[in-house]
Simulated assay, not measured.
Amino acid sequence: MNMLRIGDYSAWVSVEGKGREVYGVERTSDNSLTCWIASEVGKKFAVNWYNTRREIALQGTVIIDGMVCDNHIMLDAPHYPDKPNGVGVSYTRTSDYTRRDFMFSKINITDDDAYLDTIDLAMNIGTITLELWRLHVTSVKTQVLEHKYGGPVLEGQIVHERSKKAGAHHVKFGKEYASAPPTMDLVQGYNMDQLPYLTFTFKYRPMEILMANGIVPRSAMHLVPLQNLQTAREIRQLEERLRQLRSGGNKPNSSPRIKVEPGRHHRDLPQVIDLTHLD
């Protein structure tokens, strides 16, 4: 299975146009699903959602590693029958004429105690969340998008090795490249509810860690490239060292150093187009 689904609504994370397999799917409430997916260093990805009937207008909020990265609108079919039923978000705009793609990356791990404050800050790393909000639309205007400057930026992370994120990945924006400003439907309106109408959460880790934690069965070992098996052993050694540290074990004397970790996997899904944006 490579998507999450609640009624007419489905969501998935795609890499190179193929949906990531989802594991350990849990319904955390009537309107919320969570799962695990495998991340792969250097791979760009998109967050996608599809609404079979489009009975209501929805604002889709994409939250990556705890940071709001995008707001898009899917207009309702009764008032806007010619609009698409699917949306895909794979980048953030950095100016009127440039943008940067979402990309899985290595977390840098250090034993430098100057980074101890990153232990708590790293709690949101490793999650991609899509919140769908019911929207009351007051106006729709088609025009060339005018970029709003000063938005958040996802860059390389360094966390202390005592963090539970040791051995994991995070998301950063890829290299900036030129892209002309699109003509889009700029929507004005307001959310109808105090809480999201639907929430889909994708927790991502390297495939080796998903297997080590029993989220993916060992029978799926063929999905991991042979060159990554050494990395899996290194991750297990790091996990053992972390267990010793948390239980009060002595820390070896050494100068601060940075360690990095990798992961992998994929599958097919329909393409969606990105046409609307919240003003």
Results as ranks from 00 to 15, higher is better:
Met1Ala: 14
Met1Pro: 06
Met3Ser: 15
Leu4His: 00
Ile6Met: 11
Asp8His: 13
Val13Ala: 08
Ser14Ala: 15
Ser14Arg: 12
Glu16Ile: 05
Glu16Tyr: 06
Gly17Ala: 10
Lys18Gly: 04
Gly19Phe: 10
Arg20Trp: 00
Glu21Ser: 11
Tyr23Asp: 07
Gly24Pro: 04
Val25Thr: 10
Arg27Thr: 07
Thr28Cys: 00
Asn31Met: 02
Thr34Arg: 11
Thr34Cys: 08
Thr34Val: 12
Cys35Asn: 04
Cys35Tyr: 01
Trp36Thr: 05
Trp36Arg: 14
Ser39Asn: 04
Lys43Ala: 13
Trp49Gly: 02
Arg53Glu: 12
Glu55Phe: 13
Ala57Cys: 13
Thr61Trp: 06
Met67Glu: 11
Asn71Ala: 07
His72Gly: 15
His72Cys: 14
Met74Phe: 03
Met74Val: 14
Asp76Ala: 15
His79Glu: 13
Gly88Leu: 05
Thr92Trp: 14
Asp101Gln: 08
Met103Trp: 00
Phe104Ser: 00
Phe104Pro: 02
Ser105Lys: 02
Asp111Ala: 12
Asp113Phe: 07
Ala114Asp: 15
Leu116Lys: 12
Thr118Asn: 05
Thr118Met: 00
Ala122Ile: 02
Gly126Arg: 07
Thr129Gln: 09
Leu130Val: 06
Leu130Ser: 06
Leu130Arg: 05
Arg134Glu: 15
Val137Leu: 02
Thr138Ile: 04
Thr142Trp: 02
Thr142Ala: 05
Thr142Pro: 01
Glu146Gly: 03
His147Thr: 03
His147Glu: 04
Gly151Asp: 05
Glu155Gln: 02
Gly156His: 00
Gln157Cys: 02
Gln157Phe: 03
Gln157Arg: 04
His169Trp: 00
Lys172Trp: 01
Glu176Phe: 08
Tyr177Pro: 04
Ala178Ile: 00
Ser179Gln: 06
Met184Cys: 00
Gly189Ile: 00
Tyr190Phe: 13
Met192Tyr: 01
Gln194Met: 03
Phe200Tyr: 05
Thr201Pro: 00
Lys203Met: 10
Tyr204Gln: 03
Arg205Cys: 09
Met207Gln: 11
Ile209Ser: 11
Ile209Phe: 12
Leu210Glu: 05
Leu210Asn: 06
Met211Val: 08
Met211Pro: 01
Asn213Pro: 00
Ile215Glu: 03
Ser219Met: 10
Pro225Gly: 01
Leu226Asn: 15
Gln227Ala: 09
Gln227Trp: 13
Asn228Asp: 15
Asn228Phe: 05
Leu229Met: 14
Leu229Asn: 10
Thr231Glu: 14
Ala232His: 08
Ile235Asp: 07
Gln237Trp: 09
Leu238Thr: 08
Glu240Ala: 13
Arg243Leu: 09
Arg243Glu: 15
Arg246Ala: 15
Pro252His: 06
Ser255Val: 10
Lys259Cys: 08
Gly263Glu: 11
Arg264Phe: 12
Arg264Val: 12
His265Asp: 12
His265Tyr: 09
Arg267Ile: 10
Asp274Cys: 04
His277Ala: 05
Leu278Trp: 12
